[in-house]
């Protein structure tokens, strides 16, 4: 089946940047109330740049692998750039067709990141 590519399963079973950051700049939680998927994201930010990221999550393969891929992608990036990042980027990282019913799963990590940037800038 297309949705469960080797890449997605690798990220799901061995997520990148998994864990916590003790000297983090900010921590946010996000969840999908409908299915119970959760993500806790820690960011270390210096000079408007994400210099480290770690997350702990639970949920389906799509939500968790999407977060794992996104965490690789955003490390070293400027917040000003990430703020403008479109959801298309997430779909490109996943490289599999996402049906309407799984959009919320695919974008949970993205929503967590945008939540973190918003909170940081407050």
């Amino acid at each position: 089946m297309d949705l469960y590519s080797e890449n997605i399963l690798d990220h799901y079973q061995n997520p990148h940047n998994s864990g916590e950051i003790t000297d983090r700049t900010i921590r946010v939680f996000e969840n999908n109330p409908l299915c119970g998927d959760t993500i806790q994201m820690d960011l270390k930010i210096k000079n408007d740049t994400i210099i480290d990221i770690a997350f702990i999550g639970s949920g389906c393969a799509i939500s968790q692998s999407s977060m794992s891929m996104l965490s690789d992608e955003i490390k070293g990036k400027k917040l000003s750039v990430l703020k403008k990042m479109k959801t298309d980027k997430v779909y490109k990282l996943l490289q599999v067709p996402i049906s309407l019913g799984r959009v919320k799963c695919a974008l949970l990590g993205y929503a967590t990141l945008q939540h973190a940037i918003k909170d940081f800038e407050k």
Partner: peptide, 22 residues
């Protein structure tokens, strides 16, 4: 080791409609 949403998606790929969630 498998989230119910993923179970439901794979069942769907076999034409089997089931529900997952709360």
């Amino acid at each position: 080791g498998v989230h119910p949403h993923d179970i439901a998606s794979i069942f769907d790929s076999e034409g089997v409609a089931i529900r997952a969630g709360f």
